[in-house]
């Protein structure tokens, strides 16, 4: 959780403040998802509108970088980011009790609000680009922080300057994180031409194709839980998990649309699976059953 922090608590932070929250890298199949926020005194709002912030997607990379440097230098603006590692995204979405991407996103936004409040900033209004249903999301945030007025909207990043600013913070941080990504894997044939990370990007597609591994799948930069990965998994060595079996029994609810449906990856009936995954000690005395110790007559 978290990385860089804006400057120490400025004087204006004790006056009513507004904040915008936006995300970058929700769709890509690789790299971190970044939540960014930008805040300032309510009275600074007018000046903020003159700073040419716009939805980060409509800006060229150079312009985004320039605006980010400007806002960092602006003493009347505070900001913070939460960089969520792709390993964390995969692991949460593939947990035994799966956490979907919307929930991860909400938690990250809530984490940012907590961090800024803990800095001593008097937040009164917070503008959030929605994830999932705006009204449900707004209610969730309002219950959590009763003293703050939340505005949750679709395309908030183009509607509210403070959210546009947050989108620049998030996008620039995400781009830099991917560019400077330190790979965990030490195989010497891993290249860095990841592309944008979006599933449709030909450079990303080529990178995925060239970096699949029969046993390990992909380097951990890749979000294994993304549906984009499914076609690549077909040719890999099959891996059966206990939690997939539970999934087939229908214990987990429906998840985000991009989330990989696990039953597509595993094959065959659940009965066969559990027997293949581990020994059971079936038919033996309790001592052995509890320890899953089977008698072996041949290897």
């Amino acid at each position: 959780m978290g990385s860089e922090e804006a400057s120490s608590v400025p004087k204006w932070a004790s006056k009513p403040c507004i904040m915008g929250i936006d995300e970058a890298g929700r769709g890509p199949v690789l790299g971190p998802m970044v939540y960014g926020c930008l805040y300032c005194a309510l009275s600074y709002q007018k000046t903020l509108s003159s700073l040419n912030f716009a939805d980060s997607k409509t800006l060229k990379e150079e312009k985004r970088e320039e605006l980010f440097e400007n806002l960092k230098a602006d003493e009347s603006i505070g900001w913070a980011v939460d960089v969520i590692d792709p390993k964390e995204l995969s692991a949460k979405m593939l947990k035994k009790n799966k956490i979907n991407l919307n929930e991860i996103s909400h938690d990250s936004a809530i984490g940012l609000v907590i961090r800024v409040l803990n800095l001593g900033v008097l937040l009164t209004e917070v503008y959030v680009d929605t994830v999932g249903d705006p009204e449900k999301y707004r209610t969730k945030l309002s219950v959590r922080f009763p003293s703050i007025k939340f505005v949750v909207a679709k395309k908030a990043d183009s509607l509210y300057t403070v959210v546009s600013g947050a989108s620049i913070v998030a996008k620039v941080t995400r781009d830099r994180a991917v560019r400077d990504w330190v790979l965990d894997e030490t195989a010497d044939n891993i290249q860095r031409n990841f592309g944008s990370g979006y599933p449709g990007d030909p450079e990303t597609k080529a990178w995925l194709e060239n970096h699949k591994h029969p046993i390990f799948g992909f380097p951990s930069l890749v979000r294994f839980s993304w549906g984009t990965c499914t076609p690549y998994f077909k040719n890999l060595v099959e891996v059966l998990w206990e939690s997939d079996q539970m999934d087939e029994d229908g214990s987990s609810g429906s998840n985000g649309k991009r989330q990989l449906k696990l039953s597509n990856v595993g094959i065959t009936s659940s009965k066969r699976k559990s027997e293949e995954i581990e020994s059971s000690g079936k038919g033996r005395c309790k001592f052995f059953q509890a320890r899953k110790l089977e008698q072996l007559t041949h290897f």
Binding site: D184, E185, T186, A187, H213, P214, I215, F216, P219, V237, E238, V239, L240, W241, E242, K273, E276, I277
Partner: peptide, 18 residues
Amino acid sequence: LPCSVKYNGPSSVSQYFK
């Protein structure tokens, strides 16, 4: 591992499993 890997043979474990 808590899973069944349908493969027997060498693999670049130390480069990928950290």
